[in-house]
């Protein structure tokens, strides 16, 4: 398997007033294509910050990040957005569906952005696969938490990204829904050959990944 992602001595620091907060320190990480990785650690250890850096949503203070051999830490906001648009799907703990878009429209958004043909039909197929056929035209406020997260996953994976980043995807869900979401994510990654990096506190979910990374005080333990 070839390398998908490479982080080289990545540091992230914040200056708040007089205090310098070292969020991540000397992170070196290499992931292969189709690899599933879970990131665990205590609250405030830097897990979410790490995937924010990987997604290009935050700039590292120092160090280099390569995605598919391209150094994304050097790119500007729009150039990273272009990579994210095609190759990175992100799933949040709080779902973040666009409130005034229906389930289909939320999913079709990324497909249209990637110039897929028949985006709405493809979105419907995907939602149907996730057991949401009866919810196509519902707004997010009319969906349960589990349903919202399934729509969010559908949106993140619709364009078949190389990398899926999931930040506590089951954090707001009950155990039954958590299991369902975990199955969907891992099955999809396996079927489509995507890499999956999942940040979680849930040890059961973390154990489903082939590789487990523990972060402590901003460093890989």
């Amino acid at each position: 398997m070839s390398t998908l992602l490479r982080l080289k001595n990545v540091n992230l620091k914040y200056q708040t007033g007089k205090d310098l907060i070292k969020v991540l320190q000397g992170i070196d990480l290499t992931t292969k294509r189709k690899e599933t990785i879970s990131i665990v650690g205590e609250s405030g250890s830097g897990k979410t910050s790490l995937i924010m850096l990987i997604a290009g949503l935050e700039k590292a203070t120092s160090g280099k990040i390569f995605f598919k051999d391209q150094e994304i830490s050097k790119l500007n906001e729009d150039e990273v957005a272009e990579i994210r648009r095609k190759d990175i799907g992100i799933i949040f703990q709080s779902f973040y569906l666009i409130p005034n878009y229906t389930a289909v429209e939320n999913v079709a958004l990324t497909l249209e952005l990637n110039k897929f043909k028949n985006p709405e039909q493809k979105a419907k197929n995907l939602l149907d696969r996730f057991g949401l056929k009866h919810r196509f035209n519902n707004l997010p406020s009319q969906l349960s938490g589990g349903e919202q997260q399934r729509v969010a996953i559908a949106r993140a994976i619709a364009m078949k990204p190389e990398l899926i980043l999931a930040d506590e995807p089951t954090g707001n869900l009950d155990s039954e829904n958590s299991t369902m979401i975990a199955d969907i994510l891992f099955n999809f990654a396996k079927e489509e050959g995507s890499s999956l990096i999942i940040v979680t506190h849930d040890s059961k979910l973390a154990n489903k990944a082939k590789r487990k990374i523990k972060i402590k005080d901003g460093k890989i333990d």
Binding site: A55, A81, I98, L109, L113
Partner: peptide
């Protein structure tokens, strides 16, 4: 605010 952030997250340019 959140919809804009989501759009940015899925790859929309600010422009």
């Amino acid at each position: 605010n959140m919809s804009i952030a989501v759009r940015k997250a899925v790859g929309f340019f600010s422009l």
